[in-house]
């Protein structure tokens, strides 16, 4: 972000931000415990909640890895934004696709009940009534496709 903050700094060394060893070991321990928890939870049937419990634990683990091992907690905020944006767009991808896949066939019932006549799709509807009024006495050559 601050490419021009200090032009005179060329050649100055990068000083790494070293985390204490214990932080890594604790994170590792937490990840192992959470793995045990998620495996353990899979032996209990929570019904539909199975998925959400598994996802919740996985997300806690993923967040731990990202924040500590990947240094997101200590890094530039912008890198966290990049990471977050990717998750948002992944969510959009999945959710919008499922708008379709989860709601297919909603019109099937209506179409079964009131099947449309392909030759005269508007027969018996308000639209047909209006059309007739508009065209008045004009004779329409059937409701079939216009002659080429």
């Amino acid at each position: 972000m601050d490419a021009h903050a200090n032009p005179a700094a060329h050649g100055k060394d990068h000083v790494p931000h070293v985390l204490p060893l214990s932080t890594y070991l604790k994170t590792w321990g937490a990840l192992l415990v959470l793995t045990a928890v998620t495996v353990g939870a899979s032996y209990v049937n929570f019904g539909a909640a199975n998925l959400w419990i598994a996802l919740l634990i996985a997300s806690v683990k993923a967040a731990t890895v990202a924040l500590v091992f990947m240094h997101l907690y200590y890094d530039h905020k912008f890198h966290a934004v990049i990471f977050g944006v990717s998750l948002v767009f992944l969510a959009i991808f999945i959710i919008f696709t499922m708008f379709d896949t989860q709601t297919r066939g909603r019109a099937d019932g209506i179409e079964r009940e009131r099947p449309a006549d392909i030759k005269a799709p508007f027969a018996g509807t308000q639209a047909e009534q209006k059309l007739k009024e508009q065209r008045g006495a004009l004779k329409i050559p059937g409701e079939s496709a216009p002659t080429p």
């Binding site: 490419a3 700094a9 060329h10 990068h14 530039h76 990717s86 991808f93 999945i94």
Partner: peptide, 30 residues
């Protein structure tokens, strides 16, 4: 400009690359 900028640039590049990885796998999750 400086070693710090070079480091940050590299790290940002990697993070952007990771975004592509996430969306690549994302298709399969979808």
């Amino acid at each position: 400009d400086s070693a710090d900028v070079q480091f940050d640039a590299g790290r940002m590049g990697i993070w952007l690359f990771l975004v592509t990885e996430i969306l690549l796998f994302g298709g399969l999750f979808c």
